[in-house]
Design a protein around this nucleic acid. Structure first.
Length: 569
RNA sequence: CGGAGAGUAGCUCAGCUUGGUAGAGCACCUGCUUUGGGAGCAGGGGGUCGCAGGUUCGAUUCCUGUCUCUCCGACCA
């Protein structure tokens, strides 16, 4: 590609609205342009990157035995009503009505559509297992789109859906996809980590996320410093603790007129925060209220809470009025002592003795509270967010927290959709069987941003060769100098055409810019290899070669063969 | 959805408090000069000041409404 004909629009200034480095560099380099909140166009240079990522994904999916399809982005409401998700998805799903007043949505995902097609086409166990994949545009009406294409509303996703006669087959395909994903992430050139995940409203049992480690990541990951344990904090278990110690202190009421939080109470009483206890009151699965007891220095994990059989899902906090009626005071002074609401305590909270908690009376807390003596021994459960320093749930090492960008997510869905949508195939005994299902997603457009988060420096992006918009850029210098221009131009043109002939993805910077501008642009847009051709070097039959990530340039022989050798190494 | 902020030239922003019909830098165009890290000089083009009302002789400026965008939080395959 000749840059003189390639619409490249770079900028020196950092756009005001971009908060993270990938968004800033994608805008400065002209990779994307914003159309509206969470809506981005991929400009020519950006689309080259996107296509390279897509091609890697496509190749590896193909190699792993998936069959590519392309499904509509607009989907009829009926399918979503069948699966039950027309209600569940809420405002995140963009709903549309056509001229006949029929309801549709812009697909946020495609479980329903593929299941519909499978129901049409699959009759026999002989047709299974099968895995359909597609690379396609999704729309999710995020409450708060941010960070450019990292969390856009419209985005490109590779999704895949597999169908199986039994769980063994599903598990095998899950492993197959897991391995394919690892290859994809490796080829794209990112540092990633596979972590245990919550499956969210998509449903199903086993699920893992592929995270690209980066400070700008929106997810927190709990990783053992010794073992293999790694999980999204949403899904990271905490371990049961030994039974609490004996009561030593006597229960006494203390005035805490202005202290409503555990932090404030602990500060006032000069006690460690870890000896305080808070109650979070939620609705029970069978109606009524349930009080969740959490240690003052811990945080409730709402996903764990709503999975508890006694707690209503989705999690619903009790209203102030309900709390007033049940406890006789408002949140800020609640405690398990002398109350009639069922308490479920987090393992760590259940292990407390001589703790501080609300007195169920506005303006007062109690110290020296003990389970068994002052409050009924509670049911203990895993309810809290894991924190740094916790023992690893697998018993090996200690948890450290990292930030990650979710680049992929794989699920064993089981029969959730095939059952809801009445899919059956005949087994060898001519009996109808509801197939098991798996699904596997990669955020293709997000991946481009995630790579930049990991690979950038003061001058711009450092693309890996595999997804760079161009692998090499040829920069002829001094094209306006009457005496040497012809020689420089000739050498550059020869190199350019020979690289093209050799199948190298090369850009020729024939825009006639000054050297500084060419170098700044090449660095900003992250071309991994740069060949500079100038009169100086040609005088000694040399080109200058510089890797984007190298500190300095080096001189090489002024031949295409020498350049190819550098690219190979 | 709660809180905060911003909409003025392609971009980054000033001007608004105290009303008198708009500026800078970058970018762009022309010419000259320059050619190894976003050069220099000279000249030039470009904005119904987000939109709609209101107040006023007069509104980018004051008032009201509205739309959009961003940030923090909550939320989220």
């Amino acid at each position: 590609m000749r840059l003189s004909r390639f619409p490249l629009s770079t900028s020196k200034e950092t756009p005001a609205d971009a908060a993270v480095v990938s968004h800033q560099l994608m805008l400065r380099g002209g990779f994307i342009r914003q159309l509206g909140s969470g809506l981005y166009s991929w400009m020519p240079i950006g689309l080259r990157v996107l296509h390279k990522i897509e091609n890697i994904v496509r190749e590896e999916m193909n190699r792993a035995g998936a069959a590519e399809v392309l499904m509509p982005s607009i989907q009829p409401a009926e399918l979503w009503q069948e699966s039950g998700r027309w209600q569940v998805m809420g405002d995140e799903m963009l709903r549309l009505t056509d001229r006949h007043k029929n309801d549709y949505c812009y697909g946020p995902t495609h479980e329903e559509v593929i299941t519909f097609h499978v129901r049409q086409d699959l009759r026999s166990y002989r047709q299974l297992p099968v895995n359909y994949d597609q690379i396609q545009t999704k729309f999710r009406d995020e409450r708060r789109p941010r960070f450019g294409v990292m969390r856009a509303r419209e985005f490109i996703m590779k999704d895949a859906y597999s169908f199986h006669m039994d769980m063994d087959s599903l598990r095998a395909e899950y492993e197959n996809m897991r391995a394919a994903y690892a290859k994809i992430f490796t080829r794209v050139g990112v540092d990633f980590r596979i972590v245990k995940a919550d499956s969210g409203n998509i449903g199903g049992s086993r699920s893992e996320e592929f995270h690209i480690l980066a400070q700008a990541g929106e997810d927190l990951l709990a990783v053992s410093d010794q073992g293999d344990y790694a999980a999204n904090v949403e899904a990271a278990e905490t371990l049961p603790q030994p039974a609490h110690g004996p009561a030593v202190e006597t229960l006494s009421k203390v005035a805490t007129p202005y202290q409503k939080t555990c932090e404030d109470v602990a500060k006032l009483l000069k006690l460690p925060l870890a000896r305080s206890l808070k109650l979070i009151v939620v609705k029970g699965a069978e109606g009524g209220l349930i009080a969740l007891a959490i240690r003052g220095d811990h945080e409730l994990n709402t996903i764990k809470a709503e999975k508890h059989p006694k707690i209503a899902a989705p999690l619903a906090l009790a209203s102030d009025a309900e709390i007033q009626a049940a406890f006789g005071c408002l949140p800020g002074f609640l405690g398990p002592v002398e109350n009639k609401v069922t308490v479920i305590a987090d393992y760590a909270a259940a292990a407390l003795s001589d703790f501080v908690c609300g007195a169920n009376e506005a303006g007062f807390h109690v110290t020296g509270a003990n389970w068994g003596r002052d409050a009924a021994e509670p049911e203990a459960a895993d309810l809290r967010m894991i924190v740094e320093g916790d023992p690893s749930p697998d018993g090996r090492g200690t948890i450290k927290l990292y930030r990650g960008i979710e680049g992929g997510h794989i699920f064993q869905l089981g029969k959730k959709y095939t059952k809801a949508m009445n899919v059956t195939v005949l087994d060898v005994n001519q009996q109808p069987v509801t197939p098991e299902m798996g699904c596997y997603g990669i955020g293709v457009s997000r991946m481009a941003a995630a790579v930049i988060e990991q690979r950038n420096d003061i001058n711009g992006i450092l693309w890996p060769d595999s997804i760079a918009p161009f692998r090499v850029i040829v920069c002829p210098i001094g094209l306006d100098k009457a005496d040497t221009a012809a020689a420089v131009k000739g050498a550059a043109e020869t190199l350019y055409s020979e690289l093209l002939a050799a199948g190298v993805d090369v850009a020729m910077d024939d825009r006639g810019l000054r050297p500084g501008e060419m170098f700044k642009d090449a660095d900003l847009i992250g071309i991994p290899h740069r060949i500079v051709i100038g009169a100086k070097g040609l005088a000694t039959q040399q080109f200058e070669y510089k890797r984007r990530d190298a500190a300095a340039a080096e001189l090489i022989a002024a031949t295409t063969a020498a350049v190819l050798e550098k690219l190979a190494g």
